[in-house]
Design a protein around this nucleic acid. Structure first.
Lengths: 358, 358
DNA sequence: TTGTACGCGTTATCAA
DNA sequence: TTGATAACGCGTACAA
């Protein structure tokens, strides 16, 4: 009789006290209460919850009904303490408000939520030390898995992590047990851009690169260089300038290009943001896009369809990358082998490119 | 002698095995181990950690040193289970990749982290039911506090929540114990925009509103209407059209405006994204900005400085909103009263507006 | 000021 | 198949 929680007034929701009232943080139904009410032991309830062992169909049904009635949901914290899952997966991104990776976050969220997992977002700011400490934080929080969006962690560090928990990493080609890597095809995307311009008759193609210590930037640069080398005048280092993946960097880079006096009829920016900056610089210099120079971006941000002129850009659905990463994580978590999948790059031709002027 | 964890090999970090190796998830140092090593009771360690009671300076120093040596960090889960804090605060936003609220998330993150709190981001998608369920999820996860970025929860729901945990809301004017609300001044911002245009001689000013069931949209609409009513021709309902806060909606809205045959020399869009769409529609119609029509946006997104022409827009530092909200939360958590602060709106004049043509 | 003992809600081990 | 029982790591009455 001295039990603490007795008669836990089930389902008292939906009374007539106003609109969608928040489910009253009821005196917290516990697993023990369910067990008691169903007349079974706590272990049995736990087993049913986790599918840890076989339970007789009758008891299972009974317990499941009771769970419904009491609207019982296991406490993630208690679960974690006891060595179970936290139903959360850590997501290491670089800036929480990145227009590029942002879509990936949404993809992850959209996939994880229906599976009852919660993403835990942390930002590494493109700084290895910071990434390392954020990942440590995630481990403290006992995430069940870790999704790493590119970033600067070493392959070795990732491999090491994969020994402790399932890891999904994008922007890399790595192979290991408990580790799934998902590389989008930066090189191919860049090749597409070069070929497009080439087909339009452009021969002097300038390139605004991202910072080369940035994995995406390096890959895109490789793609550009590789493809351009197979064409007419070949690769010309004077036609490439390094930016910082920001609008301002693109602006400055274009300024440099213009100053250099080198001629070019087209420009590829390693990302859309730099393309925006470059476009403004061209405008300031009295040059029109695409009449005077063609411009190609990379990423196909949402805005790019609405810039003036609408920007031709290389698209690799980052949203899809996020979704795929999350699904792979779910697979890993369920001890299934995720299907390998490549996110294709695709060129979206709009109005910033046209046939070279003769 | 049958203790489980003995001699927990302290600080084995920084050996010569490669670059910034991840701090080996050591066999987890526990509070008990600290206590044992320092020769005090676990409770004493706990008290020092939480400042729960007075401890003699000598023991305190000793324990603190031991904590350093062992690199001990309390387990958030265990802490939560035992009724302590989780050192996490829930953040309800609407879309994790919103270009507008994204900056706020960064502001929150930047403030919370140094204080050792982790944000837990969830998205409500402008859907009251979803917001409610996400908040419930946050409560399950036992967040210490809750930051709500605008959204559709009722004031009543918020007030109810504030009884259970500290709450900070933006985009609202609410007052209650344990609740801090932070309203940015949409109305004033809109007034600024109208006055600017008016000063340039514009009299026929069209307005592209956001969806009116959206709090920000309503406030901005109110601001526009209020100010325009005090001027020359007054408020003309035919000159306002409802958009959806997206580029595409701005595009369509401008199309409608153009079709209507009504004359106007300037347009205000309730947010930058719609301004982008409107600008493209104007372009398609052969109208130039600002030569033929002046255009003003709202939010001053990062891109707006790089659009063609650079967009005149109303700025209210969302980053600052995030920071302020987070600081207020920290205050609430520490049982201090947050200073009331208003985030001022400011007009950033660029090149999309000019004197009306006569 | 300090220590002991218990409880938080769950999972895991071991018997039965 | 099921049920006790012991952790998990920490906070906190309560006692000393």
């Amino acid at each position: 009789m001295s039990k603490k929680h007795t008669d836990p007034t089930p389902s008292q929701a939906g009374s007539a006290d106003g609109p969608p009232a928040l489910p009253v943080p009821r005196g917290r139904t516990t697993l023990g209460m369910v067990a008691q009410r169903a007349g079974v032991s706590p272990s049995t309830v736990s087993r049913i919850l986790n599918g840890t062992a076989n339970v007789s169909p009758v008891k299972r049904a009974l317990v499941e009904r009771t769970i419904q009635e009491l609207d019982f949901r296991p406490d993630p914290m208690a679960r974690s303490l006891a060595g179970g899952r936290t139903m959360s997966v850590g997501v290491l991104t670089q800036f929480i408000d990145s227009p590029f990776y942002g879509e990936a976050l949404r993809g992850i969220e959209d996939q994880l939520h229906p599976a009852n997992y919660s993403p835990l977002f942390v930002s590494g700011h493109w700084n290895e030390a910071e990434e390392t400490s954020r990942v440590a934080l995630l481990q403290e929080r006992k995430v069940d898995g870790l999704i790493v969006l590119t970033g600067r962690l070493s392959d070795a560090a990732l491999l090491e992590l994969a020994k402790a928990l399932p890891v999904v990493v994008t922007g890399r080609r790595l192979s290991a047990d408990n580790l799934y890597s998902l590389d989008y095809d930066n090189e191919e995307g860049m090749r597409l851009a070069v070929r497009h311009l080439h087909a339009l008759g452009h021969r002097q193609i300038a390139f605004i690169s991202g910072p080369l210590d940035h994995p995406d930037a390096q890959a895109r640069m490789d793609g550009f260089r590789g493809e351009i080398q197979t064409t007419e005048p070949g690769y010309d280092p004077d036609l490439v300038v390094i930016g910082d993946f920001q609008e301002s960097g693109g602006f400055r880079a274009m300024g440099l290009l213009l100053q250099s006096g080198r001629l070019f009829s087209a420009v590829i920016a390693a990302n859309d943001q730099m393309a925006y900056g470059a476009r403004l610089a061209l405008h300031r210099a009295g040059l029109r896009v695409p009449e005077d120079v063609s411009l190609v971006g990379f990423d196909d941000l949402l805005y790019s369809a609405y810039t003036l002129p609408p920007l031709t850009s290389v698209r690799q659905s980052v949203y899809e990358v996020g979704q795929t990463a999350a699904r792979a994580m779910l697979d890993l978590l369920a001890r299934r082998t995720p299907p390998s999948k490549v996110i294709p790059a695709e060129l979206v031709v709009r109005e910033s490119t046209r046939m070279v002027r003769r």
